[in-house]
Design a protein around this nucleic acid. Sequence first.
DNA 1: GCCGGTCTTGACGGGTTCCTGACGCGGGAG
DNA 2: CTCCCGCGTCAGGAACCCGTCAAGACCGGC
Lengths: 224, 224
Amino acid sequence: MSRVLVVDDDPQLLRALRITLRAAGHEVVTAADGRTALHEAASAHPDVVVLDLGLPDLDGTEVLDGLRPWFSGPVLVLSARGDSHDKVAALDAGADDYVSKPFDMSELLARLRALLRRGAPEVDEPVVRTPHFTVDLAARQVTVDGVPVRLTPTEWALLSELVRAPGRLVGQRQLLQSVWGPAYEKETNYLRVYLAQLRRKLEPDPAAPRYLRTEPGMGYRFTP
Amino acid sequence: MSRVLVVDDDPQLLRALRITLRAAGHEVVTAADGRTALHEAASAHPDVVVLDLGLPDLDGTEVLDGLRPWFSGPVLVLSARGDSHDKVAALDAGADDYVSKPFDMSELLARLRALLRRGAPEVDEPVVRTPHFTVDLAARQVTVDGVPVRLTPTEWALLSELVRAPGRLVGQRQLLQSVWGPAYEKETNYLRVYLAQLRRKLEPDPAAPRYLRTEPGMGYRFTP
DNA sequence: GCCGGTCTTGACGGGTTCCTGACGCGGGAG
DNA sequence: CTCCCGCGTCAGGAACCCGTCAAGACCGGC
């Protein structure tokens, strides 16, 4: 899902964090001291940094100072010291959150989710393009060859569900459930009707779908 | 500097927070229960919300749910309960930070600074122009072909909400919520009435809207 | 109390969207 | 070869949504 750089000098904690973060779907990069941390942050392009303040070579604030001029992603600071003076110092040095050891792993994960959630909209590409049409998720607008096309609410709900998973197959149950609700899991003819309408509005040749393909018996797939 | 909405039912804490935040250079708006909180959040346009979870009328999560669909600024949750399950729940419900009572005031301020630092600068161009009329968001004035037009408070609230998102579709729920408050989510006829009034005052041809377009079933869109 | 402006509320006609059933086609199974 | 399931297509009626108008409620200033 997203890349996390974990900086800590305690190998045991590092290992625990790596396992937990992997299980939560993150890609994990680790560093055991400040110098490596700065190096890894530059080369691995993490989305978020988890930084222990008690490092053998550099002070935690020094790492933050080295990071902040060019790294714009969120930084979550871990520390054994819990008094508020340290927290204020770290937060004002550029940290986005501060968690005292010992900490609860599920809370750490939730705080990471909150940080990533906020960072995501900027990085996330809310506009999907194909050679023939573009879908702007944020503005809720579709244009074919540059001219805006009007979609009904149902058409839009269906299209956005497909476009949010480019190249991936989306099961008909999932489509029906997220557009019409859990009670309509069996009404596959709805899909046929509305897919046809979408293709008529978007595809260059609606009879030979190029972007909104159907996988017989399984579902549909949007291929940019 | 920035506007803070503080939601807490303890008048003493509310007063302390107001004084401290004022001293730190913030503008402070307060609410003592969930309903007022949602209403104030809609009308006062705060940059950040400090939300106590233990409110007399609504559950804290309900306030978050009412807030999140349209409020994009950071939310810092205060709570008397400190176990990690509550923290995870609040963070996953859309909170950006979680502080347990009793808390250190300087830490709260530092966390607010961190949240505001990351928050979008919101350097919106305060004056929006179209070939036919201009909207000055800062001066609260609209001119059509150079001549000022009088708008009622409700008309203005609706127009500014639309103009703040040029080209983007604004859902009718969001419009109703931010103009009339969360209790009016279903009164879509208000929108019809006031959109008609706005079009009569602004559009060159009110019968064929060019700038304030309606997307049936979804909402309205301002296109410059 | 009166009056002007503003906000709410209800009703109606016209247009659009949604659901539903029917039909034809094609490919795989028997 | 035939049957049958799944898919695409089409069309019609019901339900919904929107724009419009007007009358009553509300609230301030005078």
